[in-house]
Each structure stands twice: as structure tokens, then as C-alpha cells.
Amino acid sequence: MEVKDKIVIVTGAGSGIGAATAKHFAKYNATVIVSDIKKQKAQTVVEEITKEGGSAVAIEANVANFEDVEQLIAKTVDQFGRLDVIVNNAGIGPRNMAKTGEYTLEDWDSVIAVNQTGVFYCMKLALQQMMKQGGGNIVNIASLAGLKASLNNLSYSASKFAVVGMTKSAALEYATKNIRINAVCPGYTESALLEKLLSVRPDMDQMLKSVIPMKRYGQADEIAEAVVWLASDTTKFITGQTITLDGGTSL
């Protein structure tokens, strides 16, 4: 992976896919800004990276807060002089799974604020910095739920469809500016979101696996590998794409 010495921000990097992605970038000798709404979780990931000889710092940020994102980008540039890659991974699911007519306003507002508006904030400010420095790379974490219908999950599905659309629109806008923008769409992956779902509905475990041709969930490391690949100089002619990692579920 050609990401050596790149300055990389990963949001929501305190656990799950975000943590795995931060560790993978560090493994390939990038400098990683581990960002999370919970500073201690981010710091724990930093300690794991530095223990293995990698380079990382923790910056607390709530991506749903524009001022937090401004500070995240500013602190990164102040310390390292540039921003080569941002991985917009921070995301949440609804507290309650419900049909559209019964969906709560709280679940709509909170999920859209993080998963959609948060990605917009990060893209907007990262793009401004990347234009100043003459290039960069953005990888957004969407979802299979951003490509196919997802029952009783309106805000999450809407936000991830939006991420796919924002990825494609921005990629077209900045294709001549040495800025590439792509997305990955994980299927059912072992993560905090999946654990939360199965804790409420343990019976869904076998049902979910039954619709995955590979008959297993994805691993965070498998998603991270794809993210680092898209962010690397190996993929210089790829932009505006959504890479689906779902064990064949979309088939």
C-alpha cells in the first residue's frame, strides 16, 4: 500500500471499522490522526498504534458539530502541515428500529446529524484544505444500506444513500483538482452497531448469516484493507466509486 508518510484523519476511530482503519494506515507507515467523540477511546487506539511502532495522535471531535470539525482540520494542519487523506467513518444507528410511520424524530435527527451532515462538514473543510495544498483523497464509509432497501431503518438508510450521492457528486466536481473521493459499502460487519442489533434481537444472528452467501459477517480488518487501498497511490485512476464489501449479500 502506497500511503507511507501520508497524513491521515480517521473519524469515529475509537472502535470497530474506524479503529481497524487507523491501525492499518499506521501499519503501512502513514501518520494517523485518530479522532473520536470519546477522547479516551481514541487515545487507547493511539497507544496500540505507537506500541507497534506506528505514528498517531488523538483528537476529540463530534462530527455533527461544525466547530469541532474545524478544530480537527486546523489542529491537523497546524501540527503536520497538510492533510493527505480523510476517512469519514463516524456513524451511528437509531436507538429504535421502526417502520417509517412510527419512526421517532429523535432517531431521525440524531442519525442524520452524524452520518450525513457530519460527512458533509468533514468533506467541505477537508476539500478546502486539499485545494490549498494541491490534492488529497477522501474515503467515505457508506453501507450496503446505502445501496439497497433496509427495513425499519429509515434514517440510517437515508444517510448512507446520501453518503453515496455526496461521494459521486464531489468526485465529479474535483476530478481535475488531484482530489479523489470514493466510498466503501460494508455489508453486515462485526461492529458495535451489529452487536447492538443482536443484543436486542439475538434471533437475527442466523437469519442475517443465511442471506450472506459466504455465511459469515465481515471483519473490520477486511473493510480497513479496502479503505487503505482506495486512499493509496496504487489507485490513482479510481474516483467516484463505491466498493461493496458484503460477502456477496447484494447478489
Results as ranks from 00 to 15, higher is better:
3 V>M: 03
9 I>R: 00
9 I>K: 00
9 I>A: 01
13 A>V: 06
16 G>T: 03
17 I>N: 02
17 I>V: 13
35 S>Q: 03
38 K>Q: 15
42 A>C: 07
43 Q>K: 15
46 V>F: 01
51 K>F: 07
53 G>K: 13
53 G>W: 09
57 V>G: 03
57 V>P: 01
60 E>N: 15
65 N>H: 12
68 D>F: 07
70 E>C: 15
70 E>R: 15
71 Q>V: 10
72 L>C: 06
79 Q>K: 14
80 F>T: 09
90 A>W: 00
99 K>Y: 13
101 G>N: 12
101 G>L: 11
104 T>E: 04
105 L>R: 15
106 E>T: 14
109 D>I: 13
110 S>T: 06
113 A>E: 09
117 T>G: 08
127 L>T: 08
134 G>W: 01
134 G>F: 03
136 G>P: 02
136 G>D: 00
138 I>R: 00
149 A>D: 13
151 L>H: 14
151 L>I: 12
152 N>M: 11
152 N>R: 12
164 V>A: 06
166 M>H: 04
169 S>H: 14
181 I>P: 00
186 P>V: 03
189 T>A: 07
189 T>C: 09
189 T>I: 05
194 L>C: 11
199 S>C: 11
200 V>G: 13
203 D>S: 14
204 M>V: 11
209 K>T: 05
218 G>M: 01
218 G>A: 06
219 Q>P: 10
221 D>S: 14
225 E>R: 09
226 A>K: 03
229 W>A: 06
232 S>L: 07
233 D>M: 05
233 D>T: 08
237 F>A: 13
238 I>A: 08
242 T>K: 02
247 G>H: 00
